[in-house]
């Protein structure tokens, strides 16, 4: 028999969580400090959670945007266990279109969703406290062609009265998947919950056959009836064979096909 120490861990699908965070000038002061503490606490909480989950290998990618945008880990998504949040500063404009363009460029297997084992549908948590200072429509139309993006579980956070709620609703493609709050304390609490629930939902025992959605997670964390974190999916196996989308290219998929 093989020795027990010869065996490695069970193969796990990757669960990519993309944070897209507004660090523009209007976030300066208490808001950016709150964001720093929230990210730091969220990561530390979910580390304990994922240490013992065999359902998925959780990876984190953080995109910060202001007058420009930058990935916290430019080389690719980082395992949550290894991720350490380093405080960021606020300043500059709110170039949301630029952020969407950058997100689009990395939401692929050649980008940050690279994995031999494959992935669950990614999670995108996007936060802004203002209105875009660029024209994001074109970037939004472009990213909607990316199936990783359209099929992702998306949650928006509109922080403060100046946040462009309409734009967030368009990005997350569901008006009920956007959390609007003027309270930094509420933001901190719900942001953490959104991350935790995004991870837990993947492997949680279920009472319905429906699938996890951003709206479901928002309902859950907003203290809805809590029994409906899943919504109906019109998933028609878009990730299947013969898909020749440039952005969503699967190479040698055919050998795994069943159709």
């Amino acid at each position: 028999m093989p020795r027990t120490e010869e065996l490695g861990g069970i193969p796990r699908k990757q669960l990519n969580i993309f944070y897209v965070l507004d660090t523009s000038g209007s976030m300066d002061g208490v808001p950016i400090a709150t964001l720093n503490r929230t990210m730091s606490e969220t990561i530390s909480s979910v580390k304990q959670l994922v240490e013992k989950t065999a359902d998925a290998l959780v990876k984190i990618s953080v995109l910060l945007f202001n007058s420009s945008c930058q990935w916290v880990q430019p080389k690719g998504a980082e395992r949550l266990e290894d991720f350490i949040w380093e405080d960021v500063k606020a300043g500059g404009m709110t170039e949301m279109g630029l952020a969407l363009k950058e997100l689009n460029s990395k939401m692929s297997r050649k980008g940050f969703i690279e994995s031999d084992i494959g992935s669950y549908l990614p999670v995108i948590i996007i936060m802004t406290d203002g209105r875009p200072t660029d024209e994001p429509d074109e970037a939004l139309e472009e990213i909607k062609k990316n199936k990783w993006f359209t099929k992702a579980v998306k949650i928006g956070f509109a922080l403060g009265p100046c946040a462009d709620v309409n734009l967030l609703e368009k990005i997350v493609q569901d008006s009920e998947a956007v959390i609007k709050t003027d309270s930094l304390e509420t933001f901190a609490r719900l942001f953490k919950k959104a991350t935790v629930n995004s991870i837990v939902m993947q492997g949680q025992s279920r009472t319905t056959a429906d699938v996890v959605t951003g709206k479901g997670i928002v309902n859950e964390i907003m203290g809805g009836d809590g029994d409906d974190p899943y919504g109906f999916s019109d998933d028609d196996d878009l990730f299947g064979l013969g898909d020749d989308s440039d952005v969503f290219e699967f190479g040698d998929d055919s050998e795994y096909g069943y159709d």
């Binding site: 069970i10 193969p11 297997r109 084992i117 494959g118 992935s119 549908l121 998933d235 990730f239 795994y256």
Partner: peptide, 18 residues
């Protein structure tokens, strides 16, 4: 230390609900 139904077919790039 493997799931009995997760062989090559499991290795699809995106494990969608479908």
């Amino acid at each position: 230390l493997n799931h009995p139904l997760e062989g090559k077919r499991f290795l699809v790039p995106a494990l969608t609900p479908a």
